[in-house]
Design a protein around this nucleic acid. Structure first.
Lengths: 253, 253
DNA sequence: CGACATGTTGAAGCGGTTCAAGTAGGGTGG
DNA sequence: CCACCCTACTTGAACCGCTTCAACATGTCG
């Protein structure tokens, strides 16, 4: 194998049509020619270390980001200076669309672990969307889906007891991870108990107690961040048959 | 004045550039020529009586709706069959964009009073957005703004006490109504106490008690649905300086 | 005018928070 | 490589904000 071939191979790997997240991410459903156009505007493989920011509240909108690996939390800061987490983001999801409204980011995105993203300059994405009807529709869908998810979370926060919230959150994580090729019933949570509690509007202690309680009742096996779902049906019952997809920006499918 | 002139006048009045809501609604910032194109796809003046539906959960996406007068509540139905209100919509706001994600409405919109809307077929709006860059951007902005609002409501639900929630809600209504030319400190709530309670994740009784309490402390004057804000500053303090704009679909400005 | 929905007010109960104390990991420097 | 420290997590107990239940008042609409 020559050097030339090696370079070609790595180039190939960085294109959308060869990305394992293809069917979860923005380019889903685009034709080959359109994909090439999209490929041309994407800056690839920006790497972000744990606890570093992808963007921060107030940053002006330059790009949106497709997550390749790792995970992020996105949060608002309230008037008391406290965080309010509004979502966790997984590979294949698009981050940063929040900024379109005001031309600047209204939330902060922080890496929960070492992560990598594809950066997509927004002005170029927007003009590309005019030329590729399907891409425009895709973007509308993404935004619309995120609204749905936020509204489902509102329902959870407004009227569901703590047990239902946590069960629903765990089911949501399970569903999202399984779409990415991981096991549905065994996974690692990249976020802390505190982050989960914050998202779900509860105290850390309540999360901790409920996880213990779920474990006592053989619903889960909990070992630090590693969760094994032992009884998916019971968990679904507790969740009221609703799994929240608490991503900040939505996946496509 | 001839019949001909009368017809012309009423025609004029129904066009976007002569609509009093122009600077709150979708066409904001469009050029005259573009406005004409938009005008051509809009079906005007659909009237909806109180408690009737603009669209319902599961309806396939045909149109989005710009509210001309009146108000709506939009809500999800949870697995127990209970409503979860996700927003109230006022004149100048766009309703129905929730359906883009799944091609069908994920919530139900019910008129809180006799209302009138401009119906905009979505496929035509979408194709028009490709021809008018500014319109595409406007639509992205609308969706993005709605996400922001939902997230602000999430913050309220997740970590604010009842008093703050209600104060914030009232301030939000005040702000939105004043943008529409009404007084900022005196208005009628078109929704019931139950609807407010539902949106804010509280019991009706709590809303009732807090309103009485606000009145005792000379923050408000409450007479059934008619609210007079007596001390805006104190209300802002209670609201933690944050007014929630609980519209389901966002206004532009 | 009566009937029914909507709103108000009081009192008891409880889900989840807060406070407090202790445990366990994970990372760092010696 | 281990001792140390600091953060994350767990568990218990007291407390409290809000809900729930109940009874009544007030509008509103046929």
């Amino acid at each position: 194998m020559t050097d030339n071939q090696i370079i070609k191979l790595s180039e190939l790997k960085s294109h959308c049509q060869n990305c394992s997240l293809y069917d979860l991410c923005l380019p889903m459903g685009l034709k080959t020619g359109d994909l090439d156009s999209l490929d041309n505007v994407i800056k690839r493989r920006q790497s972000i270390n744990k606890n570093n920011f992808l963007f921060r509240l107030g940053d002006s909108l330059k790009s949106v980001y497709a997550i390749r690996s790792g995970s992020f939390k996105t949060y608002l800061i309230n008037t008391d200076g406290n965080e309010q987490i509004v979502g966790f983001s997984l590979p294949g999801e698009l981050l940063g669309m929040d900024a379109i409204g005001e031309n600047q980011h209204t939330c902060t995105a922080k890496a929960l672990e070492t992560s990598s993203v594809c950066e997509i300059p927004f002005d170029r994405l927007e003009s590309l969307a005019r030329d590729i009807p399907n891409l425009q529709h895709q973007l509308f869908r993404l935004l619309s889906k995120e609204i749905q998810q936020d509204q489902n979370l509102m329902l959870l926060l407004a009227q569901m007891p703590a047990e239902t919230r946590l069960a629903s959150f765990l089911l949501g994580m399970s569903e999202r991870l399984s779409k990415r090729g991981y096991a549905a019933n065994e996974f690692n949570l990249s976020m802390s108990r505190g982050d989960i509690a914050n998202l779900l509007g509860m105290a850390v202690e309540t999360i901790s107690r409920l996880l213990s309680h779920f474990q006592e009742n053989s619903l889960l096996n909990v070992e630090r961040k590693h969760i094994t779902i032992l009884d998916m049906d019971k968990l679904r019952q507790l969740a009221n048959h609703s799994a929240v997809n608490c991503s900040n920006s939505s996946q496509v499918s």
